[in-house]
Nucleic acid binder design. Structure first.
Lengths: 346, 346
DNA sequence: TTTAGCACTCTCATTATAAGAGTGCTAAAT
DNA sequence: ATTTAGCACTCTTATAATGAGAGTGCTAAA
């Protein structure tokens, strides 16, 4: 949405309404605004301006004579043009450092990140695991575990480690496995995981048949295993605390929200769509395509390792959320997450 | 608690009160009971008996003249002596099969199990990961990943696979790693993971010094890594749906519950304590040691692989929960989980 | 020992009432 | 041409009052 020319006085009042409503969760009256603006305008003047803002669709009345609350359009204008840039408090920064102090494996990092987002924002936090497909292979190890089963350990340059169990139609001897493993490592090192199958298929036509023949009848097994890497995993934390917000005292709103919590995949879809686009994105209420999410807002961003977008994270809550603060939380947490992942790359 | 001699008429009435209250969530009156018992007794008779039951502490009044609700003692008696043995409906059995149809790695199994418990019981489900310490080592693989870092893959006979990253004070060559790996596999195969450190320490005094010397300065690293295996991981699902139960409309009760949900570790503690004891355990309300859990009940059981208790699972909800049904859910799900884990062992 | 009858208690839903917050409009002030 | 004060009006919310209903406990009869 382009910036509409709201004269600065109007903007100040809209901003005050939005911020006050975010804080207090109840309709904002003209007197309150006058006070917040140090009586630069009288309540009567403010009422006139509010009538204009309402006509233009930035705010509404819940009933004839209550204060005003922002509409989605109002929040959108606030987020795009009025929102101040906020930083985190030293306290919050300390909390982040503290949380990440003892992390080891990736699922722990994801867990802690989503908890952090939830706790700092006092809404729900969601984090999508770094996606393997966009990482380059550093090393493959094949370990014979039983009969026809082989454990394949994939290690990527981005520091991700993934175990896959392959069930072949017939057993391989240890020396055969070693041969295949060496072949894989020689041929596939540096290749993006998403490309591996394609790459192997091409090899079929190439020179080194002796090893390829060893596993070519098991190719479909490999293909299927690599498909597993496509699945997006994610963490979601804080559902319970967003339920206690006053907007969900209403039984209908609550039921909708609960359905969404059960079907978290819908949220994943929203957040995954954003992944391709750089920067922090905000989705406000009705802007969301899913019926269940139309009373919610999301603040999301993607995160990178070695310059590649590998995942996304964000905060989910009612449309009445502390956008400025949450913007800053999402920004900071994603940056710190990037640093941590960066340090772990191989 | 021993069976107190409640004459069978009393028992019938207590059972009816418990079951009706579980279903309806509101105090049960004498007329309702009379109807449920096909007017074998008049409401007046039932009132007399209820007065006795109340005096003995099995039921209470919320206020002078409402119906009765069971006390924790009442629920306890019901669970111990009155509860019928219920099975699952074919529908439910189908749902379980369906859920487990496509499972691959252990975290997926745990995830699905907790979701299953939550969905079937309409309460919250909790599952503790199989504990590695109680598994015997089948194979160790050491993979050089970067500078001083080595990936250690532990494979157990129970089919669990665990990756640990070891950061050594100095780098090892590939051939050194292989030597150490071979040594480990030769010496440690079949040893319980909890015993490995102790076992290696004993080796210090033994004959084969040449390999032991290679890593003995890194022993503390190993020790620390193995300590990681002690941590209990778990899944918890369904918190949102137990919040909607009428008992949590009260703001105070809700707050307590939310704190518990944030600090899920408390639940873990309860469930982990039960692990040592065989069979299905029921904890009712005040029986729980934690303040926050005193209005909740847990139905838990442990599960086994190869005869060893390796984990636990259960259902958490308000004291007014469908004990008979949930008992059956916990029993069936744990059995099926055991089968699945059993099939995966190596 | 069981049951019918009845007075009594307490909740819950409904209604009435008053206080309060906030608006919109009009007319005066700047 | 704006801005503001004043005021009537609207709608919510809290509180109290009321009555119906559910269910009890007790007494006395079956």
């Amino acid at each position: 949405m382009r910036r509409i020319d709201l004269k600065s006085r109007k903007e100040k009042i809209l901003g005050t309404i939005v911020e006050t409503y975010i804080e207090e969760a109840k309709p904002v009256g003209s007197r309150t605004i006058a006070r917040k603006l140090h009586f630069k305008f009288s309540p009567a003047t403010i009422r006139n301006i509010m009538a204009d803002l309402e006509e233009e669709g930035y705010i509404t009345h819940p009933y004839t004579s209550a204060g005003r609350i922002p509409t989605d359009k109002g929040y959108r204008y606030y987020v795009d043009y009025l929102m101040p840039e906020e930083g985190l408090t030293p306290q919050e920064k300390k909390e982040i450092i503290q949380e990440y102090k003892t992390v080891e494996d990736i699922s722990e990092i994801m867990d802690k990140t989503s908890r952090l987002l939830a706790r700092l924002s006092e809404e729900a936090g969601i984090v999508v695991y770094p996606c393997l497909k966009k990482s380059r292979l550093k090393h493959i190890e094949l370990i014979d575990i039983k009969d026809n089963s082989v454990l394949m350990v994939l290690i990527t340059y981005s520091g991700l480690i993934k175990n896959l169990i392959l069930r072949f139609p017939h057993p391989y001897s240890r020396s055969q496995l070693e041969k295949i493993g060496n072949f894989f490592n020689a041929e596939l090192e540096g290749v993006y995981l998403s490309e591996i199958c394609k790459y192997l298929l091409q090899k079929r036509l190439s020179d080194d048949f002796s090893v390829y023949n060893l596993f070519k009848d098991a190719f479909s097994i490999l293909e299927e295993a690599f498909k597993k890497l496509e699945e997006e995993r994610f963490c979601f934390e804080g559902a319970t605390q967003i339920i206690t917000q006053p907007e969900f005292e209403d039984r209908v709103a609550l039921t909708k929200l609960l359905r969404l919590m059960e079907e978290k995949r819908l949220l994943l879809e929203i957040i995954a769509q954003d992944m391709e686009e750089e920067g922090i994105k905000v989705h406000i209420g009705e802007e969301n395509n899913f019926e269940e999410a139309k009373s919610l807002s999301l603040v999301t961003t993607n995160y990178h390792v070695e310059g590649n977008t590998v995942g996304a994270l964000g905060v989910v809550g009612p449309t009445r959320m502390a956008y400025a603060h949450i913007f800053s939380i999402v920004k900071n947490v994603s940056e710190i997450l990037e640093n941590i992942l960066q340090e772990r790359r191989l």
